[in-house]
Design a protein around this nucleic acid. Structure first.
Length: 880
DNA sequence: AGCACGCCGACT
DNA sequence: GTCGGCGTGCTC
């Protein structure tokens, strides 16, 4: 079911003689992949004579009682023998043609195989939403049913359910609902609907799939030079004046059109001339203009950005650029540049020549909303050749952007992980910026792909370079470079990690190394641009602060630095691990902790604006309730807040530093579209002194005025029970620290912690990526964790706590009978219950190369009762 | 995913 | 006996 290799390429070509025959005679049959879970098989359909279909086309086909989306896979010259001919139906229509060139199919197949996901599911993440439409069965009243009197007289003969359905339909003016809706409203409604149909009061019909259509708009084209002169003498003086006026109006329109190159959208034309369609109609009648429907591609509105020229590069940047541009064909490049080293400029200059050659480039970023600055820079450099593709676009925008990529015009696509599927026909370069970021991994729904892994495959298939850029590369990428060095020993002067690492931190402007075998390259930008130093990192031991009588959440050092901000007219950033106000609320009398009714977590306290009711919110299922006045357990009024979130820190700042203006920057305040950009603009305009926020602050913000970075409590990052915790903490802290001192003034970083001796803290303090990696990798290797071992996580969840647990046990027992991998668990997830679902998991650990005999997932899946859902997460990132 | 069909318990 | 619930399996 999962491994379904569909090789279009060889089949589309087929036997030369045969395809020739097919062309002249009967069109034959086509096997299609149907969009329908639980049917990964191919289905055979007849090819209607009037439809031109090629493998890879997206179709609609009748399937059971509905019409569903399907992909044409291959042609058959004869129907399958074991299939009764009368059962074969005809293809209904073609939705989109010419998608999926050869190696794109291979990519999709590879993903389906590697991530144990049905191919159709993979296709679905690659396509823009709505392309694979499905029909909807609907029920509507007949004229008879709409007639109140008739209906009233018939009601007495009807069953209660039929009456309910009738009432429901009559309540809406159209008398029309989908079956799905009716069934939601009324239990077992279908018997009632059948009755209504029998009585002739209602009828059902099939609404064809609503497929995203290109948006058509009226365009006006000028076809004459100027308004023809016509005199009509038979008019009264009054009519003459009126005609003069009209012609004046028309002349104006022609002038405007002329100025715009003879063509404009009707809506824009009407707006600029402040007129109505009647004038245009008249002009059309005279044969001066043509009005026609034209496709209009919806694109995200971008603020106009001033053009921008290539900046001069420092030595390291120039070397990196030279290496990248000299690459021919597939190569994987790790661009390791410290924060503020100017990676973006290298990307921009690497892309520019590609566009000249008519090729396109793909740039993946962790979260598009978080990087308005990056997209702005690309737009400033490449103007309208830049397309942005991410899940926050409306369906229409996504569809149009997708079609725009499809045209083959040389362009730059910037997007989040799903943009790795952009259908760019002539791809010259793929860039993953901030490649260490975990949002490149999808953990639900399936396929649980990692954009970096898919990017590697795609770059290989397209035979183009892949650049992985980061200040804190993932251990996976780091090790793959190390391994390639070990493999390609010829001419390698830097043997092993130690040698390479010393180079990174040395004065040598760039280290470059190429392995002839794996074609991996390491490029380093060890210095910030304009030779700015990395900011010194000061670690504050909060235990010591407490000992010396400072009970505030701010250390004396941080307080001092905050005081200085205003004096020096500089700006700062405060990093807090959590959003909200307090992480939990507890009763001081009985110790009761307020918990989410749906999840096994405590509720976080959110302080809403003054006057609004105080709110408790679950950060897992978003459940919310009013903050109670008294303890629900013992009625004591003494409820206390514990743990600090962004809100509480902001409050505390306002209290202690009333003169500092601050902006809160977390998912609570950036929820609205564009809020992100606005807050950053406010900040860069100097409307605030301090930016207070969560993880979001770590992702690619470039704010030159920031000199101070404070981490209120690093401990929240350090003590999670996940093998990746240290890596993530190091990355986050290094990235936050990297926001300081990017401009003229030197920066300063203050990290507060209760465990200053922690290795992560030490490494962040010394900006020593290398020794952190060495220590961390040693541990990973000892325990066979990635990148030295591979993991597959089975996630089980159910509303029934007993059934999941039992199923997990049964599966684990079954798996234990096979060799070749280690099994951890079954274990309850660290938060057993989320949104009322109980979650268990089983972790499989095995050697990275040469797959062991992995279990037959089909068999495993059969062990799951319907009430238990099972997700197979390959190379999981979140395992707690 | 829908939507058959068919089996089983509760009721006229 | 029939109605209405729900589990199982099929859709070219």
């Amino acid at each position: 079911m999962y491994i379904q290799d569909v090789n279009l390429f060889s089949l589309a070509v087929a036997e030369p003689g045969e395809s020739y025959k097919l062309k002249t005679n009967f069109k034959g049959w086509v096997e299609v992949l149907v969009d329908c879970p639980g049917s990964a098989d191919l289905y055979t359909y007849k090819l209607p004579e009037q439809l031109e279909i090629k493998p890879g086309d997206i179709l609609t086909v009748p399937f059971g009682t509905q019409q569903v989306g399907a992909i044409a896979i291959r042609f058959l010259s004869q129907p399958p023998e074991n299939l009764a001919p009368e059962k074969i139906r005809e293809v209904e229509d073609v939705v989109s043609r010419g998608f999926f060139p050869g190696n794109y199919w291979q990519l999709l197949n590879q993903i389906a195989t590697y991530y144990y996901t049905p191919l159709i599911q993979v296709i679905k993440v690659a396509l823009p939403p709505g392309l694979l439409g499905r029909s909807q069965r609907r029920l509507r009243l007949t004229p008879l049913g709409k007639n109140q009197d008739v209906a009233k007289n018939t009601v007495i003969f009807m069953s209660p359910t039929a009456q309910q359905v009738l009432q429901l339909l009559q309540k809406t003016p159209t008398g029309d609902y989908s079956y799905y809706y009716i069934q939601q409203k009324i239990k077992s409604a279908y018997r009632g609907t059948r009755e209504l149909i029998r009585l002739g009061l209602a009828e059902n019909y099939l609404e064809p799939p609503r497929i995203n259509q290109p948006k058509l708009q009226k365009a006006v084209t000028l076809v004459v030079e100027e308004l023809p002169h016509l005199e009509d003498d038979d008019l009264t003086p009054r009519q003459k004046i009126r005609q003069q006026e009209m012609m004046e109006r028309q002349r104006e329109i022609i002038e405007v059109l002329k100025r715009q190159g003879g063509e404009l959208w009707q809506s824009e034309l009407l707006q600029t001339c402040n007129t109505s369609t009647s004038v245009l109609k008249a002009l059309e009648q005279k044969g001066c203009i043509i009005i026609e429907e034209r496709e209009k591609l919806r694109r995200e509105q971008s603020p106009s950005i001033a053009g921008d020229q290539a900046k001069s590069l420092n030595q390291a940047q120039a070397n990196a650029l030279e290496t990248i541009t000299s690459l021919n064909g597939f190569a994987q490049v790790l661009l390791h540049g410290v924060t503020g080293s100017g990676k973006t400029e290298v990307y921009l200059q690497a892309i520019a020549p590609l566009l000249q050659q008519g090729k396109s480039a793909l740039v993946l970023v962790p979260e598009i909303g978080l990087t308005p600055q990056l997209t702005d820079r690309f737009r400033a450099r490449f103007g309208n050749k830049v397309n942005v593709y991410h899940s926050a676009l409306s369906d229409g925008e996504r569809y149009d952007t997708w079609r725009q990529m499809f045209t083959g015009e040389p362009q730059v696509v910037i997007g989040t992980r799903s943009a790795i599927f952009s259908p760019l026909p002539n791809l010259g370069l793929i860039i993953l910026d901030e490649e260490h970021d975990s949002s490149f991994k999808q953990d639900s729904p399936i396929p649980t792909y990692h954009a970096r892994t898919v990017a590697q495959w795609r770059a290989e298939l397209e035979n183009c370079p892949l650049i992985l850029g980061s200040a804190t590369p993932s251990l996976e990428s780091w090790v793959s470079i190390k391994e390639s060095k070990g493999a390609g020993s010829s001419g390698a002067e830097a043997q092993g990690s130690r040698g390479a690492g010393e180079k990174i931190l040395s004065q040598s402007p760039v280290t470059s190394h190429q392995s002839p075998i794996t074609n991996h390259q390491y490029l380093s930008l060890p210095e910030r641009i304009n030779s700015k130093p990395l900011p010194p990192v000061e670690i504050v031991d909060m235990r010591q602060e407490l000992k010396e009588g400072n009970r505030s959440i701010f250390s004396r050092s941080l307080k001092e630095a905050l005081e200085e901000l205003k004096e020096r007219k500089q700006q700062g950033i405060l990093f807090i691990h959590r959003r909200g106000h307090s992480t939990f609320v507890s009763c001081r009398s009985c110790g009761y902790v307020l918990e989410c009714p749906n999840c096994d977590v405590s509720l976080a306290y959110h302080h809403v604006e003054a006057g609004a009711p105080e709110l408790l919110r679950c950060h897992y299922c978003n459940y919310g309730q009013a903050h109670p006045k008294h303890c629900p357990e013992c009625s004591s009024p003494y409820l206390k807040f514990f743990g600090s979130g962004t809100q509480k820190v902001a409050q505390e700042l306002n209290r202690q530093f009333p003169h500092l203006k601050l902006i809160r920057f977390d998912s609570d305040t950036t929820r609205n579209k564009g809020a992100h950009r606005n807050l950053i603009t406010q900040f860069t305009n100097g409307e605030a002194d301090l930016l207070v926020g969560t993880q979001m602050l770590t992702k690619g913000l470039d704010l030159p005025q920031v000199t101070l970075v404070g981490v209120v409590a690093a401990d929240g990052l350090l003590h999670l029970s996940d093998y990746r915790t240290s890596e993530r903490a190091f990355q986050t802290l290094t990235q936050v620290a990297g926001r300081a001192g990017r401009g003229e003034d030197p920066g300063r970083v203050i990290i507060q912690t209760y465990t200053p001796e922690h290795p992560v803290i030490e490494a962040v303090k010394t900006h020593d990526y290398q020794s952190f990696c060495d220590a961390e990798l040693e541990q990973r290797e000892a325990l066979n964790y990635p990148p030295y071992g591979r993991l597959i996580l089975l996630r089980l969840s159910s509303l029934d706590p007993i059934q999941v647990q039992n199923t997990a046990q049964i599966i684990a027992t079954q798996l234990n009978q096979q060799a070749g991998f280690e099994i951890l668990g079954p274990a309850p997830a660290s938060i057993l219950r989320v949104a009322n679902r109980y979650r268990w998991q089983i972790l499989l650990k095995f050697a990275p190369h040469g797959l062991p005999n992995l279990p037959d997932w089909e068999e495993i899946r059969k062990l799951c009762p319907a009430s238990v859902s099972l997700t197979i997460d390959v190379d999981p990132i979140n395992i707690i």
